[in-house]
Deep mutational scan, measured.
Amino acid sequence: DLPPEQWSHTTVRNALKDLLKDMNQSSLAKECPLSQSMISSIVNSTYYANVSAAKCQEFGRWYKHFKKTK
């Protein structure tokens, strides 16, 4: 379990794929700090720029909290 400071584009993509087993992209976009188009691009590997470090950390913090509450 990585601390949010160490999250990267790959970590975010893997976490998104895991979350999308249980929910669809639009529900996920309402919950998490990423937009639906960004989620779609990341999981389909069409998001060519890497997600910014700040966004990765924000998502990492959100993901840890989300997993605790589920």
Rank of each mutant, 00 (worst) to 15 (best):
D1G: 04
D1C: 03
D1A: 04
L2F: 11
P3W: 10
P3T: 10
P3N: 14
P4S: 09
P4V: 10
P4L: 09
P4R: 09
P4K: 09
Q6C: 11
Q6F: 04
Q6Y: 10
Q6M: 15
Q6A: 13
W7I: 02
S8R: 07
T10E: 15
T10K: 15
T10L: 14
T11D: 15
T11R: 08
V12K: 01
V12S: 00
V12Y: 00
V12T: 03
R13I: 02
N14Q: 12
N14K: 07
A15E: 07
A15F: 03
A15M: 04
A15N: 01
A15V: 10
A15G: 04
L16W: 02
L16V: 14
L16E: 03
L16R: 02
L16N: 00
K17V: 07
D18M: 09
D18Q: 12
D18G: 09
D18R: 10
L19T: 04
L19V: 06
L19Q: 01
L20M: 03
L20E: 04
L20H: 02
L20S: 03
K21V: 07
K21F: 05
K21C: 08
K21N: 12
D22A: 06
D22T: 13
D22M: 08
M23E: 04
N24M: 03
Q25P: 13
S26H: 14
S26N: 12
S26F: 05
S27Y: 15
S27L: 11
S27K: 14
S27N: 03
S27W: 04
S27T: 11
L28E: 03
L28I: 09
L28A: 03
L28Y: 02
L28Q: 02
A29M: 06
A29N: 04
K30T: 07
K30N: 08
E31L: 05
E31A: 07
E31C: 04
C32K: 01
P33C: 04
P33K: 04
P33R: 03
P33H: 06
L34G: 00
L34Y: 02
S35M: 00
S35T: 15
S35R: 02
S35Y: 00
Q36V: 12
Q36D: 05
S37G: 12
S37K: 09
S37C: 12
M38D: 13
I39P: 00
I39D: 01
S40F: 07
S40V: 09
S41I: 11
S41D: 07
I42M: 12
I42S: 02
I42V: 11
I42T: 04
V43C: 06
V43E: 06
N44P: 01
N44S: 05
N44C: 12
N44I: 03
S45A: 09
S45L: 05
S45V: 05
S45Q: 11
S45I: 00
T46D: 08
T46Q: 05
Y47S: 12
Y47Q: 06
Y47A: 12
Y48D: 13
Y48W: 06
A49H: 10
A49P: 10
A49D: 13
N50Y: 07
V51F: 09
S52L: 00
S52P: 11
S52V: 00
A53Y: 10
A53G: 06
A54L: 07
A54P: 04
K55L: 11
K55W: 03
K55P: 03
Q57C: 11
Q57D: 08
Q57I: 11
Q57K: 10
E58R: 02
G60D: 02
G60R: 02
W62F: 01
W62R: 01
W62I: 06
Y63S: 00
Y63H: 03
Y63V: 04
Y63F: 03
H65N: 14
H65A: 12
H65I: 01
H65R: 08
F66K: 11
F66Y: 07
K67T: 06
K68W: 06
K68I: 04
T69E: 14
T69Q: 08
T69H: 02
K70V: 08
K70E: 15
K70T: 05
